[in-house]
Design a protein around this nucleic acid. Structure first.
Length: 265
DNA sequence: GCCTTATGTTCAC
DNA sequence: TGAACCTAAGGCT
């Protein structure tokens, strides 16, 4: 589930497993081969994440930038690793830990100025301690755009994706199509604080957990492999709070879900 | 074996 | 606004 929490969890894992020693980096599939050769064998200094972007900092100012896109994923294993299976864009082998990256939308080597330029285009990330929610508020409070769209705009807020978008708006009884400037300052503060805690839980558990215990009532048809949610992917099912069928529409090519009773316009 | 689906982004029109 | 793109899994035939 590559929303911001996934990338921060990966950054934490990669930092723990790779930082401080050299890493073998290759591209079994070939598409990252030229860049892999640049960092192969260098010392891995640190990993960090901003929004949905992951950065591996190697010695001598070379940074591997990864964006998972819709279905990129890392598969971890012990060392020695088995021969690569499928389309492995990047293989990393450390001492005792290795990982394969498949299906990212971006995997490239950058220098520090290019990383700075990239990060400059991103809004505050609720998972970063230095994040300033006022920066997002200044955009939201002046915008006619729907809050559901603004939360997904990485230049406004970095790291929130379609699931957190739907769930946090439900938790605060805000209709996703309400204009940003019709969101009050207090509502925004509450939304931000909630995103911080929900996404931190996501990092800790490696899985989204957004349903309050008192609302976590049975839903036997719910697929095991997706997070238990209030509205995301629950179109037609009764709202966990009021029982009204959850609504769905496609908005700007993304699936949007909400409860018309709990989230009146 | 083929079709659909997905938590995202970018580019063309 | 729609299409394209990166890949794998699940449901279907």
């Amino acid at each position: 589930m590559p929303e911001g929490h996934t990338l921060h969890r990966l950054a934490r894992l990669h930092h723990r497993e790779f930082a401080g020693s050299s890493v073998r980096v290759s591209s079994p599939q070939g598409r990252f081969a030229r860049d892999a050769a640049v960092v192969d064998g260098r010392v891995f200094v640190r990993a960090d994440a901003w929004g949905k972007h992951l950065f591996h900092h190697y010695e001598h100012d070379r940074i591997v930038h990864v964006h998972l896109g819709l279905y990129g994923a890392f598969t971890d294993s012990s060392v020695p690793m088995d021969p690569p299976v499928g389309q492995v864009r990047m293989r990393m082998i450390g001492s005792g830990f290795g990982t394969d990256l498949r299906g990212p939308i971006t995997c490239e080597v950058l220098d520090p100025p290019r990383v700075d330029a990239l990060v400059e285009r991103l809004g505050p990330d609720p998972l970063r301690p230095d994040a300033d929610p006022d920066q997002a508020w200044s955009r939201i409070s002046r915008s006619k755009t729907a809050i559901g769209g603004l939360l997904m705009d990485q230049a406004v807020l970095a790291g929130v994706g379609n699931v957190y978008r739907a769930e946090v708006l439900f938790r605060h009884n805000i209709h996703p199509e309400r204009p940003g400037r019709a969101v009050s300052r207090d509502e925004w503060t509450a939304l931000w604080d909630d995103l911080v805690s929900l996404m931190e839980i996501g990092v800790e558990r490696g899985r989204m957990h957004v349903v309050r215990p008192e609302d976590d009532i049975g839903d036997p048809s719910y697929a095991k492999d997706r997070p238990r949610t209030y509205v995301y992917r629950r179109a037609g099912s009764p709202c966990r709070v009021c029982g009204t069928p959850v609504l769905h529409k496609v908005m700007k090519a993304r699936n949007l879900f909400w409860c018309p009773t709990c989230q009146p316009l």
